[in-house]
Design a protein around this nucleic acid. Structure first.
Lengths: 339, 339
DNA sequence: ATGAAAGCGCTAACAA
DNA sequence: TTGTTAGCGCTTTCAT
């Protein structure tokens, strides 16, 4: 490790120019001679100089850093979003700071304060269903995946989400297309933070209606958590009490995984007796003994739009994104072996 | 949102005191009267004031922020480590900045530069097998999980890892204990970035030796990537060519998952015909139709030691951790149904 | 208990 | 093309 704490002044002295000139070289604004540049660069190299970003940020009243509020990066979907956004922004000179809230509102607030305190220039929120006034920050913001119901599209913000209603619809429609007339649903009863599963449920009902299949509440099982255990329990409930459906739409892959395992354990043939469609396209879904048919989110597009929004916002461009405001993206059916 | 960009000066003026006094209140150093404090706090509240962390950091030549170099947070194990460390440090007033390198050395270098540029006070590295001189930073550092072979314990650093050799040993020993005499191994042939799997292999051999079972290279299958596909292929190789072992140690759970699926598909009874032990205790392992017996890392202890090290280092304490330097933690066998 | 003022490292406005 | 300098918001030393 070379000497510590070399400042722009040191570089200026050693290269025999003023700090302003060094600053110009660093920021490549062109107002210097080729020889000067060469000399300064050489000295910077030699002393392994790195500009102090705190000083720069303080001076410029801004830092090329974007915060992302995310409930839990160990959730595969969020993790992938974060990594892709990070990598894309990094290429453009922006840092992404991950703020993992664990769904805890107080932690989220403390992170919001930090984002302000660090003078970050942008914010991504995978947040709550309802935002309070004091939970807003006046910097370019992208609401991602989980869109607050009371969002006001007045400030500098957009929202990007996938079309859950359509997802529920095409999942169910696929089952019907494959001949199912008795389609059940295992539904994550998410009271907080997102209406996504309810929208999928609405899509499910629309598909039934369109096919003239009567909706039957006996075919609906609501669970409190979207995990394998609950998926298994729901399957058992169908087997032991409610009667086997010939198609089952699970509003999350974890539920589908649990249900599939349980069916197989009880000798129910999937997809012969019961066809299954999951949701989210988690990696587990394709690793099962019988790979699970599922709905995949337009991850890449979500990432792309998010990053493009910031770049245009920082460039003070009036992009089409700024106008659109509320962006809803189509999802895709991934056909595998359970349906 | 309240007025933007309220500074300490604004607060000082509005409360009729000097900036120094406001600063004292913010930092709670006690040198002020109760009335002054009350007034200042009230004004800060009223204007929703947040101290500028850039200015503070610039002044103090330091920022309470720790960087973590991690290959990929979508890897469940790393993700969990990161989240736990983040939460623990956050409680103590430190921010964790995640630097996802995607195993790319150039990205890692750019992140290291950023960590210096932002004047961060600590660094966690899940890094490479071999570190170059110019890839070191002179701040308190914890090498975590993947420990460079050429690490010098001279600076302010420690290393924290789990005992892979012991892991391979107890995994294999368990198989032997359950009566296996013909124990195969599927081994991730990780040429770069970590010797962990080789150590597990060494543990495997030690267990065989101890039980007077002759080591047989025919029972060893090396794969280039630790994923399900390769696990499945290895299982197939045993089934079709090398002959079925009665026990199989997979140096990663993903390999075990793939192998298990393949065995089941071919009608091989697990654990009756083949017992399996995996490694890493990923969530998938317990979600399989036959939950997989595996080795779990001392995650919580790793997190705990990492955080404790920083806290004591920043407090300039001479802790036992500082002396220990190289910390190797025992792993644990998680008994489930494949062995 | 409180205030005045220096200075952290940088950028940018102005001057030359 | 280059230099001088003010000032970003804060902490901290030194007075008082």
């Amino acid at each position: 490790m070379p000497d510590k704490k070399i400042s722009i002044r040191d570089i200026a002295e050693k290269s025999g120019v003023s700090v302003a000139t060094v600053s110009r070289v660093i920021n490549q604004n062109g107002r210097y001679s080729a020889e000067t540049e060469a000399r300064v660069r050489q000295i910077m190299e030699e002393y392994n100089y790195v500009p102090n970003l705190l000083a720069r940020g303080l001076r410029q009243q801004q830092v090329p850093e974007i915060g992302i509020i995310v409930p839990d990066i160990t959730n595969e979907f969020f993790g992938r979003l974060v990594v892709q956004i990070e990598s894309e922004l990094f290429e453009h000179g922006y840092t992404l700071t991950i703020c993992n809230t664990n769904e805890d509102r107080m932690i989220e607030r403390r992170y919001l304060e930090m984002i302000r305190a660090k003078q970050m220039c942008g914010l991504i929120r995978i947040s709550h269903e309802h935002l309070r006034e004091e939970e807003l920050i006046d910097i370019p913001t992208v609401y991602l995946d989980r869109i607050p119901e009371n969002i006001k599209y007045t400030g500098q913000c957009i929202s990007v989400e996938s079309d859950h209603e359509q997802g529920g619809y095409i999942a169910t429609k696929e089952l019907i297309k494959q001949g199912c007339r008795n389609v059940g649903i295992v539904l994550h009863d998410a009271e907080i933070s997102t209406k996504a599963h309810e929208m999928r449920y609405i899509g499910y009902k629309r598909a039934l209606e369109e096919a003239n299949i009567e909706f039957d509440v006996k075919k609906v099982i609501r669970v409190k958590r979207a995990d394998c255990q609950n998926g298994g329990r729901a399957a058992l409930e169908f087997i032991e009490r409610r009667g086997l459906p010939d198609g089952l739409f699970c509003t999350s892959d974890l539920l589908a995984v649990g249900a599939l395992d349980e069916f197989l354990k009880h000798g129910v043939n999937v997809p012969r007796q019961v066809r299954i469609v999951g949701y989210d396209n988690i990696s587990l879904a394709k690793m099962m003994m019988i790979p699970i048919t599922t709905i995949s989110h337009p991850e890449h597009t979500m990432v792309d739009i998010t990053c493009r929004y910031f770049l245009s916002a920082f460039a003070k461009e009036e992009s089409e994104l700024q106008k659109k405001k509320r962006i809803v993206l189509p999802v895709e059916l991934i056909k595998r072996e359970t349906a």
